[in-house]
């Protein structure tokens, strides 16, 4: 056994807030989250021999949490409250929304940066609401990638899907998250900038134009 009972207990109690936080975001339900954490701890204790070292504890117990969640969901597949994590009808168009493209104003680069201002304003509650609004199949990959810091191959192994599917699903999930956050941004008063700028030439042209306009304004002011 790589760790003693005392170390196991200390690690579990030290990670409990984070385990509950991730479980709550996975299940979107406080009671289910508590059950999930309790089941995870029980399974972890039974599987303690599979832990290689104390340093690997965090990733190891989160892997158990994920696997417990996934197997619970698959077992309870017909539960009306939970959508499928299988993403059978992924929207091919869904991976292309970007708040950056909505807000970015290259011609105002030196005076204002609305997309960064939005991130400064964005609250934990805003992000949590947006995450909770995602379908299970998207929410789970974002949680695994961003909250648990799992690699694409670890996510693929956990969800038993090809790594290419992880890649495309994450792109769509991030896009879907930004769509929800964009609604939030608009309530904060952020507005859509002009047409999105997708290439460097257009960016530089806009910047040159902005420079000319600024110089013209200066000259007029000085005249």
């Amino acid at each position: 056994m790589a760790v003693s009972r005392k170390v196991f207990e200390d690690q579990v109690l030290g990670l409990l807030g984070c385990l509950q936080g991730v479980a709550r975001r996975l299940t979107r339900n406080d009671a289910d989250a508590e059950d999930l954490v309790a089941e995870t701890v029980a399974r972890a204790w039974r599987a303690l021999d599979s832990l290689k070292s104390e340093a690997a504890f965090r990733a190891w117990i989160f892997r158990i949490l994920n696997n417990t969640f996934i197997s619970d969901m698959r077992r309870a597949g017909a539960r009306p409250r939970l959508e499928s994590i299988e993403c059978e009808d992924e929207d091919a168009e869904a991976g292309d929304f970007s708040i950056f493209e909505q807000m970015h104003q290259p011609f105002l680069l030196w005076f204002s940066n609305p997309e960064q201002a939005f991130l400064d304003k964005l609250l934990r509650e805003d992000l949590d609401r947006a995450l909770a609004a995602l379908p299970d199949c998207y929410r789970v990959v974002v949680i695994l990638s961003d909250l648990e810091e799992f690699s694409y191959s670890e996510i693929a192994a956990t969800l038993q899907i090809p790594i290419g599917t992880v890649r495309s699903r994450l792109a769509r999930a991030r896009s879907a998250l930004q769509k929800v956050l964009w609604q939030q941004a608009q309530t904060y008063g952020f507005k859509r900038a002009g047409a999105p700028v997708r290439d460097c030439d257009a960016f530089e042209a806009n910047a040159r134009e902005a420079g000319k306009t600024a110089r013209a304004a200066e000259n007029e002011g000085g005249a």
Binding site: L16, G17, C18, L19, Q20, G21, V22, R25, D30, E34, S98, I99, F100, E101, H104, P106, L109, N113, E115, Q116, L119, L122, R124, L127, D128, L131, V142, D146, L147, E149, R174, L177, Q178, V197, D199, C200, F203, A207
Partner: peptide
Amino acid sequence: CKSCFSRMEFERRLKEKTGTLCEDEVAS
């Protein structure tokens, strides 16, 4: 490319913010 760099910075900061959602959370 300033435009792509700005876009990358935005995505990186958003991911970072999402990653800290559980930070400092205390169990009930």
